[in-house]
């Protein structure tokens, strides 16, 4: 083969990877990152829904309004409280479930399947079920509380209960996922190590702390991050159960974005809410990134 031929081949070989990576990346540029950039720009304009492709540049006007609006702080608070509590309750319940069904017992397969229901049911169907269970007059919860003689509750309409009611649905949905992640990690705990710890006289709790917990810690960390990110992203169940109410106690940032844009018709303002949401999501992602890097370093030592 002539030298020219092999040179040419080398030249094209270097381009081969791009033939594979460019189509998907161009796709993401068009349908993900360009919209994201445009959203950041839109937050600096007074775009209205009547003509979404034309808006006047108004600088930081939307942000000035945003930071003066008590509804914004309410929304930010709802988002953070919701995400933190979803992580705490979802992860705790998920870890407990995983530990409970880790060792084999009769009927384990079917128990495991039932424990996964909340995760497998589509969000909209889950919202409908829980709406019905929370129903003021005929819902199962109020039937029970009435039977117990403590009367009815406005699960989704009382400012004290609504966030908790949403959280219950969320935990029902995310705990099974945490359970699966932790179960996978538990399988990597060598049985002999646990056995040895027990023979050495360690009781159940000590074995858990010294042997099991270090093994599942990375899995728990990862699950916590995912639950946190999903809580910030979650729209459907909150929108369908409370619509952000009562008095904004469950109006997380994503609910606020949709409402400001398509009920308030202010796309510029909605984008400003979106920018805050992006900062929040990126902050969590970078925390995860740093933790993950540190763990890699620690593991390679």
């Amino acid at each position: 083969m002539s030298m020219r031929g092999s040179k040419l081949r080398n030249g094209t070989t270097r381009l081969v990877p791009y033939a594979f990576i460019l189509p998907p990346m161009i796709y993401l540029m068009v349908f993900m990152f360009w919209p994201l950039a445009r959203q950041m720009y839109m937050s600096l304009t007074n775009t209205r829904i009547i003509n979404p492709n034309r808006g006047r540049f108004i600088g930081l006007g939307n942000y000035e309004r945003l930071f003066e609006d008590p509804a914004f702080y309410l929304s930010l608070r709802a988002t953070l409280v919701y995400a933190v509590l979803a992580v705490i309750f979802g992860v705790t319940l998920g870890v407990i479930s995983a530990l409970a069904i880790d060792r084999p017992f009769k009927g384990r397969t079917i128990v495991r399947a039932i424990l996964l229901f909340g995760w497998a049911v589509p969000n909209v169907a889950a919202s409908l079920i829980w709406l019905w269970m929370y129903n003021d007059r005929s819902g199962v919860f109020n039937r029970i509380t009435e039977y117990l003689g403590i009367g009815r509750f406005g699960w989704l309409t009382s400012t004290d209960l609504a966030l908790g009611a949403i959280l219950a649905v969320t935990v029902w949905q995310v705990a099974p996922f945490v359970m699966l992640v932790v179960l996978a990690a538990l399988q990597s705990v060598p049985h002999e190590v646990r056995e040895a710890a027990r023979i050495d006289g360690a009781d159940g709790l000590n074995t858990f702390r010294a042997v099991t917990l270090p093994h599942i810690r990375p899995a728990v960390q990862l699950a916590s991050l995912l639950v946190c990110v999903w809580s910030i992203r979650r729209f459907d169940i909150i929108y369908l159960l409370t619509g952000g109410g009562p008095v904004g106690t469950t109006s997380t940032l994503v609910v606020k974005i949709r409402q400001t844009a398509f009920e308030g018709h202010e796309l510029g303002m909605a984008s400003a809410y979106g920018a805050v949401g992006l900062v929040l999501a990126l902050a969590i992602a970078s925390v995860h990134y740093v933790v993950e890097q540190r763990r890699m370093k620690w593991m390679s030592r």
């Binding site: 993401l28 445009r38 775009t47 492709n53 974005i257 979106g274 999501a281």
Partner: peptide
């Protein structure tokens, strides 16, 4: 960038996509 897509809430690109789809 691929990792980013898993963090970004769908609601963030809702409005720009809406405008783009109109066009």
């Amino acid at each position: 960038l691929l990792f980013m897509t898993q963090v970004v809430p769908e609601a963030l690109i809702l409005v720009p996509l809406y405008a783009m789809f109109i066009t």
